[in-house]
């Protein structure tokens, strides 16, 4: 795992000095986050005690990359009533967070910052800066964003592209214009989902995946408790396809949000691509 600038980082001290003269509005004192991605960015960027509560999803090991850190915080379930009673002066939410809850909180006079999902790698750094600024620590956001951009540049792949497909429950895949698609291109892959004509997320019928014969198949880790949606990941046809293809073991939690942990996922894909060049 990468180390990121925290309070003791020399970079941060430099940044602090840079920003010392600027007139900064008083940072919010009680911040509540109700979205998995803002949870993680806020944990990384807030002062101790500044972040009052994070969402319950932050504790889910399959979606959250920061479960251990999350245990230190009180948990909220995203209901406006619960959040209002926490007396926040800033609420962080996603743009897809329950609209009714967000409207209600705004109506009650609480400032809500909504973060859209990161659809492009460029968004990730922008989000870091945005959350840093919202928390009253723009210098930390800036430092995190710079580190991210530098690491990203180092992971780019040049040379011929191999084929890869993302495959999730219900046959869901990432098409063009998605973060996953961009990560695949960056690490030297052609995305089967995009080549099948899908824009954004969509369903790729299993037989079209099989016919495309991707060299790498990226799938998710099943959740506990059964679901028919995930059964497709155990389908004999997919199993045979994966036996023939290289596999990328990525943690879903690393893919989900535009946080520094995304670099883990990108690094895994870069390694998988490098492995393809060695294997045959």
């Amino acid at each position: 795992m990468l180390a990121f600038p925290r309070n003791s980082d020399p970079l941060l001290i430099a940044a602090l000095a840079l920003w010392a003269g600027a007139a900064v509005a008083a940072p919010p004192e009680r911040v509540v986050s109700m979205n998995l991605c803002t949870d993680q960015l806020a944990m990384l960027l807030a002062d101790p005690g500044q972040l009052v509560s994070i969402s319950n999803l932050a504790l889910d090991p399959l979606s959250s990359a920061m479960v251990d850190e999350a245990r230190a915080y009180p948990i909220n379930r995203g209901g406006a009533e619960q959040i209002y009673l926490m007396d926040p002066d800033l609420v962080l939410a996603g743009t897809y967070t329950a609209r009714a809850s967000v409207d209600l909180l705004r109506g009650l006079g609480i400032e809500v910052v909504q973060l859209p999902p990161a659809d492009r790698l460029e968004d990730v750094a922008a989000h870091m800066r945005q959350i840093g600024a919202a928390l009253g620590h723009p210098e930390r956001g800036e430092a995190m964003a710079r580190a991210f951009e530098a690491d990203l540049a180092a992971l780019g792949h040049t040379g011929p592209a191999a084929t890869a497909a993302m495959y999730y429950p219900n046959g869901y895949t990432a098409g063009s214009g998605t973060l996953s698609d961009q990560i695949l291109s960056l690490t030297g892959f052609r995305n089967v989902g995009a080549e099948a004509g899908l824009t954004g997320g969509g369903i790729l019928p299993l037989e079209r995946l099989v016919m495309a014969e991707p060299q790498v198949v990226v799938t998710s880790t099943p959740y506990p408790g059964a679901s028919r949606s995930e059964e497709i990941l155990a389908h004999p046809a997919l199993r045979q396809l994966r036996d023939g293809a290289a596999q990328a073991h990525v943690r879903d939690a690393d893919w989900v949000c535009g946080t520094p942990h995304l670099l883990n996922a990108i690094r895994t894909m870069a390694d998988a691509r490098a492995g393809l060049d060695v294997a045959p």
Binding site: G171, S227, R228, S229, I232
Partner: peptide
């Protein structure tokens, strides 16, 4: 505990042969 399970109510009520 599975987030996909709730989406499957429709499948169990309507049926499907996909995949």
């Amino acid at each position: 505990p599975n987030p996909f399970a709730v989406m499957e109510i429709v499948y169990w009520m309507m049926g499907s042969l996909a995949d």
